[in-house]
């Protein structure tokens, strides 16, 4: 495992921890899109179907369990926790799941590396992860009101994507036969979706002002 891959995993982990910290300690999910969180839960469910049958390393299994567990825990908090759910911005979080899930599933049926069930679900998870942040970005655009923890959550997610691209470039040059167009293109699309957010995040950080997205 190279340094880019490991840093990517760690920033991904940080993003989840920041979100859980916000929800658990402040008891608020203001500015957090439930739609995005439900899509992530579906992403991990579809991708980690091999968690019991395919053992890669202890690190790998533990991380998979953390991502699966935390994504379902976050969804539970927003939907069911009697205090947290009151701060959920239902009026602005109106993105339709099916609008993203269905095209991703059809695309996975059409374009995949191997047409076995687990392979299609794995490919579907790649496509869905690429666009799962959209409801969150739309919510941030609509509400304008971005607190520090929500901003950091999206920042860490974007950093994770950028580091994974570095990891793929590194692996391409150091490992034989390491070519995965589907993963790379969907990963690149996903990272580009954060570009706009990153621009405003860095500007607010540089000028030391509160993060605000334009209309």
């Amino acid at each position: 495992m190279n340094i880019f891959r490991f840093s990517g995993d760690m920033t991904h982990l940080m993003s989840v921890l920041v979100l859980l910290l916000k929800i658990h300690t402040i008891k608020s999910c203001a500015g957090i899109s439930l739609k995005t969180q439900e899509l992530y839960a579906l992403v991990f469910l579809a991708r980690y179907l091999d968690i019991v049958t395919n053992f890669i390393s202890l690190y790998n299994t533990i991380m998979k369990l953390i991502f699966l567990g935390s994504s379902f825990m976050i969804v539970w908090y927003i939907r069911r926790h009697r205090i947290v759910r009151r701060s959920y911005d239902k009026e602005h979080d109106t993105f339709r799941h099916l609008f993203l899930v269905l095209p991703c599933f059809i695309l996975a049926l059409l374009i995949n590396e191997r047409s076995a069930f687990k392979e299609i679900m794995w490919t579907f998870s790649l496509y869905l992860e690429a666009v799962a942040i959209l409801p969150q970005l739309v919510l941030l655009q609509r509400t304008k009101n971005i607190d520090n923890l929500t901003g950091q959550y999206v920042f860490f997610l974007g950093a994770y994507r950028a580091l994974y691209i570095c990891n793929w470039i590194y692996r391409y040059f150091t490992e034989p036969h390491y070519v995965h167009w589907i993963t790379w293109i969907s990963g690149l699309v996903q990272t580009l979706l954060y570009a706009d957010f990153f621009y405003y995040y860095f500007n607010s950080w540089k000028n030391n002002v509160k993060l605000q997205l334009p209309a």
Binding site: D9, N60, Y178
Partner: peptide
Amino acid sequence: LLPDSIKDEL
């Protein structure tokens, strides 16, 4: 068959 190295990623 070569091992599917991409599957060791998360």
